[in-house]
C-alpha cells in the first residue's frame, strides 16, 4: 500500500537549490548579532587593529549624553569601542539579573543598583554617583486646553503621559506629585486630579517624550535633560520649583564579572573628570563635581 499519492506536484531540483541557497544566505547574514547599537559599529570598521569593546547598559535618559561621551572617549582611547544598551533602568537591571553580560551599568536610580547588589551581580559600595537630574513638565503649545502653569495639568480633559511606577522617571513623577499635593498652594486633591488625566504609563522616559512630540498626549513629565532637543515652537516646558522637584541620582558601577576592569575604571574616571562632567552638563544633566 503506497502512502504517496500519485500525480503529486513535485518541486523542481533547480528551484529547490535556489531556495536552500537563500536560506543559507539569510542565516549567515542574520547571525551577525542584532543588539540595537545607535552608533552602528560595523564589522568592517578597522580590520587590522584589535579593538576592545566596552558594553554599557545605561538608563534611557542618558542616551544623548553617553553617546557624546562615547565619541570623546573613543577619540581619546583608540582601539576602544563603546557599545550601548539604552532602556529603562528597571529593564536593564532585570536583564543583568537574568544573565545578560555587560561591563558597566549606569542607573537613573539607586534602587536598581541595590537590587543588583542583592542579587550578587554588583559589589556593595562599588557604585559611584556621577550625575543628577531633575524633572520638568513638557506640554504641547497647540493643545486644545491651554496649559501655562502646573495647575493647568489638573484641568479636565488634559491628556497626560507619565512613566510607569516601576521606571525611575515614573517613581520620581509620583514623588513630585506627592510633594506638590502636600503644598498649600495646590491642595491635597492635586495628585489625584492629575492622575485622573493620565492616559498611559510608559516604560521609559523616551516613550513619554515620543507620545508628547507625536501629539498623542498634551503633556508629560520627563527629565530636565530631555527638554534640550525639543522644538520650542511646538513644545513648552514648565519648570518645577525646587521644593517639589525630586533629585534623580545617577549611579554607575563596573560589573565584577566583566573582563575589562581597567577599561571600565578608566571610563568611570572619564565620566567623573572635568571633561566628562562638562559633556553631561551640556546635555542637561547636573554634574556632581
Amino acid at each position: 500500500m503506497s502512502r504517496i499519492r500519485p500525480n503529486q506536484p513535485t518541486v523542481r531540483p533547480s528551484t529547490k537549490r535556489c531556495f536552500v541557497l537563500l536560506v543559507i544566505l539569510f542565516t549567515t547574514v542574520g547571525c551577525r548579532g542584532s543588539v540595537w547599537n545607535p552608533r552602528g559599529n560595523s564589522l568592517g570598521d578597522n580590520p587590522g587593529k584589535p579593538t576592545t569593546t566596552l558594553t554599557v547598559f545605561a538608563a534611557a535618559s542618558l542616551t544623548e549624553s553617553f553617546l557624546d561621551i562615547a565619541d570623546r572617549f573613543e577619540a581619546d582611547n583608540p582601539g576602544v569601542k563603546l557599545d550601548f544598551n539604552f532602556a529603562g533602568s528597571q529593564q536593564l537591571s532585570q536583564q543583568l539579573v537574568q544573565g545578560a553580560t555587560a561591563d558597566l551599568f549606569a542607573s537613573a536610580d539607586k534602587e536598581y543598583i541595590d537590587s543588583l547588589v542583592e542579587a550578587g551581580i554588583l559589589d556593595k559600595g562599588s557604585e559611584q554617583i556621577f550625575a543628577n537630574n531633575r524633572l520638568a513638565v513638557i506640554f504641547r503649545k497647540d493643545g486644545r486646553i491651554p496649559i501655562h502653569k502646573l495647575e493647568d495639568l489638573a484641568s479636565p480633559g488634559v491628556h497626560l503621559v507619565i512613566g510607569a511606577e516601576s521606571v525611575p522617571i515614573g517613581r520620581h513623577s509620583l514623588e513630585f506629585l506627592e510633594r506638590i499635593s502636600s503644598a498649600e498652594a495646590f491642595g491635597p486633591t492635586f495628585k489625584d486630579d492629575i492622575l485622573r488625566n493620565v492616559m498611559s504609563y510608559e516604560e521609559n522616559v523616551k516613550a513619554v517624550l515620543s507620545k508628547v512630540i507625536l501629539g498623542e498626549a498634551d503633556a508629560g513629565i520627563v527629565y530636565d535633560s530631555d527638554t534640550l532637543t525639543l522644538d520650542p515652537g511646538e513644545i513648552g516646558v514648565i519648570p518645577i520649583p525646587e521644593a517639589y522637584n525630586p533629585i534623580a541620582r545617577y549611579y554607575i558601577a563596573a560589573l565584577p564579572a566583566s573582563a575589562n576592569q581597567d577599561l571600565s575604571s578608566r571610563f568611570i574616571e572619564f565620566i567623573l573628570s572635568a571633561t566628562g562632567q562638562e559633556i553631561l552638563k551640556s546635555n542637561g544633566l547636573i554634574p556632581v563635581q
Binding site: A164, S166, S200, Y201, E202, E203
Partner: peptide
C-alpha cells in the same frame, strides 16, 4: 498605551 485596568492586557502586564 499602558494603563492598568483600561489598556494593560496580560502581555503588557507580563512585560512590565
Amino acid at each position: 498605551g499602558n494603563f492598568p485596568g483600561r489598556t494593560q492586557t496580560m502581555p503588557l502586564a507580563i512585560y512590565l
